[in-house]
Design a protein around this nucleic acid. Sequence first.
DNA 1: TTAGCTTTTGACCATGCGGCCAGAAAATAA
DNA 2: TTATTTTCTGGCCGCATGGTCAAAAGCTAA
Lengths: 210, 210
Amino acid sequence: MRPENNPAGRNPRSFIETARRAQIIASAIEVIAEHGFAGASLARIAKHAGISKGVISYHFTGKDELMKEVVSQVYADTVRYILASMEGQETATALLRTQIIAGARHMREHRAQIKALGEIFSNLRLPDGRPRYGVAASEELFQSLENIYRLGQQSGEFRPFDVRVMAVSHSAAVDNMFAYWSAHPEHDLEAHARELADLFEHAVGAKTRS
Amino acid sequence: MRPENNPAGRNPRSFIETARRAQIIASAIEVIAEHGFAGASLARIAKHAGISKGVISYHFTGKDELMKEVVSQVYADTVRYILASMEGQETATALLRTQIIAGARHMREHRAQIKALGEIFSNLRLPDGRPRYGVAASEELFQSLENIYRLGQQSGEFRPFDVRVMAVSHSAAVDNMFAYWSAHPEHDLEAHARELADLFEHAVGAKTRS
DNA sequence: TTAGCTTTTGACCATGCGGCCAGAAAATAA
DNA sequence: TTATTTTCTGGCCGCATGGTCAAAAGCTAA
């Protein structure tokens, strides 16, 4: 008998259940980061974790739930870290710079997680074949970036421009900073982040610092 | 007996051979664009083209050759079009703007091709599991973008900045312009491209046009 | 110790994959 | 026409996949 899902009712997870789920999620992240989404079979994930394949089916309803769990966990971690870094920043210029630099710092410490997140985002599909997380899934991120840009425009720090295009480009540049660093590990990620912050400060027409 | 490969020696392709290869490549592009790389099986590509699966094996040595053929064909088309558009432009600022706007124009007319190219680029793997086209495959593109940026710096049009970071970000912003438009077909691609050109003109510190 | 519940194993299943091939069909040459 | 080569079909192969299950093992409480 497998532990039923827990929709609001009783049924707390046992100690073993909690530990196994965490272990399996961690193993999935590592395997996806190393072999890509298509190379991450349940068999490989189980072998990497040193357990039998059936254990995954026992603790998760299917591969789909496992992938969704990886996404929500890594995504929540990332958002939490970046938002915490931005706390206390006042000007839009400072928020912009912090968003980029904190993102880079987080990438540096969680390379496999971010890699896995990207793989799942661009490869996981619904049963009917449509992407589960498409560009549409970034809507929330776009809106929070737009808030920063709109703030800067209202305060007069930034020139007028289309905030949606700026947000999409910002998000793209940060994602690709990660991809580039991922392919060139000797690349200086922090320097790239600082340069990217400069790039966007100029792009928005902010008063150049110093 | 299948037509042998043609390494420098005689053996021109027959009329049928040429037509079939083109048909299969076109079918592959459409299927990949619609179902994604993982959803593009030989069976589906054949069915979409209205032919038997064996025909693909007859005209191509394998799926790998078919994918490589799609890439080299679409890639060459794209590069040719953009370079032709840039011909005659003198200033780095004009080259920069043209590169972005011509890219958008080409995307608009070749949506499926560009989509398929991206899918293959990020999913096709070598037999050992490593990506066939990684970020490393963009090196050529990065260098030609860097040439534009360096030109602008030498002419005094552009401020000093790291040309590699600028090139990577530029490439990322253009790619994501496509992805965003692909997910939101009602989005105004041309307007996005103009806005993006403005963004980078400001980013490089070019004298703002009137 | 014993009984009952949870967890794990490893074999098994149906499905879809890329690739292969014998023979049919079609095009071309004699 | 007939003979030869090119092209195509449809079935088959071995393999990997995600998922299932009966039985074994482990754990906890009486």
